[in-house]
Design a protein around this nucleic acid. Structure first.
Length: 424
RNA sequence: GUGGGCGUAGCUCAACUGGUUAGAGUGUCGGGUUGUGGCCCCGAAGGUUGAGGGUUCAAGUCCCUUCGCUCACCCCA
């Protein structure tokens, strides 16, 4: 019988790796909570229209990367390719804007995009998503970026670059778009085939192209930065000033454009050089028109996403991954001892002591080997001789010393073991 | 969707220009005299060399097809 394998681009995260994920998520929850954010969970399946309206039907994500299908009830559904649309849907649906005009939210979970997998890119991947809804003040943009950087530093991610840009607003961006389109139409022959295509679909993305000819063609083109309206400029400068208060090092990158249509004003990206071609660890920006576009009030919003696979691949081995072994490993010999072992082991566990035991009828030698492999701090040897006289041998696995102890006081035994754990 | 690289034990890799029963390390299990881990020693299990076809006296090795993985383009977290 042929074994069934996982789907292309879908990965198992095994024990040994999950510890790192737990660590990252724990730090994220702690820090985001400190900054006043609250966690919400939204479905991974939504109506396809939510993403079409939210992300934009001209984007690659919606056009060719979504896992979209019609369910048995003839509804058009999609696995979420990103989290923001779902969060905003929930925000509108539960009228959070009336309950809590300023909502600071985060969510953690899987996203799905049907792309060709490569280093740092999977079809199911995980993101931590943070959103602030109901505030356009530049200080919140800076707060969000500050929190992101603080979080990344807290999980020991170094060697990162922060780039920020302003994408303008519905007033100034379309004007710039026309301007740049007009500028490039005379220079089409200098552009790579991809950019010729981009020129019609999303000319701003040409700024992101790495091809020399395209860079050259843009050399003295108008830039978005000098074309955005005075309000956007003031907003952007204010974000920068706020970031300077905490000496957050950033680079203004006027060429940075985001892949999703909904972004306005502040856009930012945290990149690294250690991830192959997928250099973005986190990215986000402001999306002032999105809530309204999705049928809600005209609330501004800003958010970012952190790629968990990418982050997990980048951070150094942490203390948290080296989970300590059980405080106690019980090695029973014989049927009577097995019953004692079952009782003792589970009693200790319910007391909150990490305990494990030998199952089956293994030799003492193999049980001790397992105790060693699990990095048990102590081992309790329950032999028939000892059981008969109401005792057991408690072995210190670090020092190798062993003592006979009485079995008539479990709590005293528990105390002895925990003292050993404390001394390390 | 387009291109490059690679598929040999669970994992990491050997096997010269095609040439006996495809090896090693690591991991797993067992043993090294009564019931004691780590280090060391011994042993066992574990492979239709991704699959299918072809060339040849002979294919892990050469050719074709196919599947899978991987990296890059594209796009993005």
């Amino acid at each position: 019988m042929e074994a069934i394998t996982a789907i292309k681009g879908f990965k198992d995260i095994l024990p040994g790796e999950t510890e790192r994920w737990q660590y990252i998520e724990r730090i994220a929850r702690e820090i985001f909570t400190d900054f006043g954010f609250r966690e919400l969970k939204v479905p991974i399946l939504e109506k396809t229209d939510l993403f079409v309206r939210g992300i934009g039907d001209g984007t690659d994500i919606v056009e060719k990367e979504m896992y979209a299908f019609t369910d048995r009830g003839n509804e058009r559904l999609s696995l979420r390719p990103e989290a923001t649309a779902g969060v905003i849907r929930a925000y509108i649906e539960h009228a959070l804007h009336t309950v809590e005009p300023l909502s600071k939210l985060f969510t953690i979970g899987p996203m799905f995009r049907r792309e060709r997998p490569q280093k740092g890119r999977f079809r199911q991947f995980h993101q931590i998503n943070v959103e602030v809804l109901g505030l356009d003040d530049p200080s919140i943009d800076a707060e969000l970026i500050l929190m992101l950087i603080h979080f990344l530093k807290s999980v020991d991610l170094t060697a990162i670059d922060l780039e920020i840009n302003s994408l303008g607003c519905p007033v100034c961006r379309p004007a710039f778009r026309e301007k740049i389109t007009a500028y490039l139409y005379g220079r089409e022959h200098d552009l790579c085939p991809d950019c010729v295509r981009r020129l019609r679909i999303n000319p701003l993305r040409i700024f992101d192209c790495k091809v020399e000819g395209c860079k050259k063609a843009l050399h003295d083109s108008p830039t978005l930065m000098e074309s955005i309206c005075p309000e956007c400029t003031v907003h952007f400068n204010s974000v920068r000033d706020y970031l300077d208060i905490f000496d957050v090092p950033f680079k203004v990158n006027p060429r940075m454009v985001r892949g999703l249509d909904y972004y306005t004003r502040t856009a930012f990206e945290v990149t690294t050089t250690a991830l192959g071609a997928q250099n973005a660890v986190a990215g986000g920006g402001r999306y002032n028109g999105l809530v309204k576009e999705l049928g809600g009030p005209d609330s501004p919003g800003i958010g970012f996403a952190v790629g968990l696979e990418r982050l997990a691949a980048l951070i150094p081995i942490t203390e948290a991954e080296l989970t300590p072994g059980p405080a106690l490993y019980i090695a029973p010999l014989g049927e009577v001892a097995k019953a004692w072992s079952f009782a003792l082991c589970n009693y200790f566990r319910m007391l909150g002591i990490r305990a494990d035991m030998g199952y089956g009828d293994k030799s003492l030698k193999s049980q001790m080997k397992r105790a060693d492999k699990l990095k048990a701090r102590t081992a309790l040897i329950l032999g028939e001789n000892e059981i008969n006289e109401g005792t057991a041998e408690l072995r210190d696995m670090v020092s190798g010393t062993q003592e006979k102890i009485s079995l008539d006081n479990f709590d005293h035994l528990a105390e002895t073991i925990m003292n050993k754990v404390k001394e390390g």
